[in-house]
């Protein structure tokens, strides 16, 4: 298998960044976050955020306008062919989450042109998780530390080297373009074995089988009230979740020109559904928390054909009051018995 010594990784990425937009984890202040490559990479920590921002940026310009409705207008779309995206070191959960976002943004009557053009030429390089965190429960969703769904290249990491296994044409292309940095030889059998055996501490406590069906009859269950009482109504969980995708569209005028943007939004915010005239179909935390988990564990299954959660545990780390997918699955299971 082709491999690279960890020491040379930065030079590979620096080279890659001339033809790719590289999205990778790096240490930023006190946390490790995914972001555009700026000369450093952290291959150890699982970042607090997900890599969805590479395809669905938190804020993106839809167009710039000039003029006014009164005097006439011109719009210029702010999107053209950019360098393809390279996700360098997604985790198996991240890669799988991208396949779920694909169902939202690419399938159905309308495909999202921006998402599609970023995604179409992207290469997702995923590293197997040798040390899952206490918050990881991906195995509940049928994936695991060595899952390859959604990845173009899979990387095995041992003490000194990273072994590249191309999985798709795009992945092979990426590897071929960086042969100068890669050496031939060796199969990381023990790493493969280790990944296969890796156990997740939460796996035994979380249960999703039949969850979607069970929730069909739990819309009015009192458990929502109890669960949501501690929610602070912030956007931390949804913004960091790799499968949450809600956004809003808004204008930012500056005199006779301005921009229209779209930005992530969160169904946990109190005004998310506030309508002109003051009606709010989800007026309290109860409805909003219910929406979040019903979306992930029931509506998503009906609409996208799968749970909209990959068990990455980011919401566990994000929430300051311990309300997250794992606690919800646990409480819902108890309540629905």
């Amino acid at each position: 298998m082709l491999h690279i010594s960890k020491h040379n990784l930065l030079s590979l990425l620096t080279h890659a960044s001339s033809s790719w937009q590289v999205f990778c984890p790096s240490k930023q202040g006190s946390t490790v976050n995914f972001g555009w490559f700026e000369g450093t990479v952290d291959t150890v920590a699982i970042p607090v955020n997900s890599c969805k921002g590479a395809f669905l940026p938190q804020t993106e310009e839809l167009f710039t306008y000039r003029g006014t409705p009164e005097t006439g207008l011109s719009l210029t779309g702010g999107f053209d062919g950019q360098k393809p995206v390279l996700i360098f070191f997604a985790r198996p959960c991240d890669a799988r989450a991208l396949t779920l976002l694909d169902r939202v943004f690419l399938e159905g009557e309308y495909a999202d042109d921006r998402y599609r053009s970023r995604r179409a030429r992207s290469v997702v390089v995923t590293v197997g998780c040798k040390s899952p965190l206490d918050t990881c429960f991906c195995t509940a969703f049928g994936i695991g530390p060595d899952s390859k769904a959604g990845s173009d290249v899979f990387v095995y990491e041992d003490e000194t080297s990273l072994y590249f296994e191309p999985l798709t044409e795009g992945g092979a292309g990426f590897v071929a373009a960086h042969l100068a940095y890669l050496a031939e030889g060796g199969t990381p059998v023990s790493v493969m074995e280790e990944l296969r055996r890796a156990e997740l501490p939460l796996a035994g406590r979380i249960w999703v089988e039949g969850m979607a069906e069970m929730l069909d009859s739990m819309f009015d269950h009192p458990v929502w009230e109890k669960m949501s009482a501690r929610c602070r109504g912030c956007g931390a969980c949804t913004y960091l979740c790799p499968t949450c995708y809600c956004f809003s569209v808004f204008d930012a005028p500056r005199g006779t020109h301005g921009k229209r943007y779209r930005s992530w939004d969160s169904c946990q915010f109190s005004d998310f559904m506030l309508m002109a005239g003051g009606h709010n179909p989800r007026p309290t935390r109860k409805e909003r928390v219910r929406q979040r988990f019903m979306h992930k564990f029931n509506y998503g299954v009906k609409r996208q054909g799968d749970y909209l959660c990959v068990g990455c545990g980011r919401c566990i780390r994000a929430c300051s009051v311990g309300l997250h997918a794992a606690s919800a699955l646990f409480d819902l299971k108890e309540a629905g018995r």
Binding site: C234, F250, A252, Y261, S263
Partner: peptide, 30 residues
């Protein structure tokens, strides 16, 4: 994400000025 604001006992306005659509002190653009 407003977790900081929502957790803070000193940020207790019923309707935060930063959430108001009008006047829009803060756009949603990050």
């Amino acid at each position: 994400c407003f977790a900081c604001r929502n957790a803070c006992p000193a940020c207790s306005c019923r309707k935060c000025s930063l959430d108001l659509p009008e006047p829009e002190w803060l756009s949603r653009a990050v």
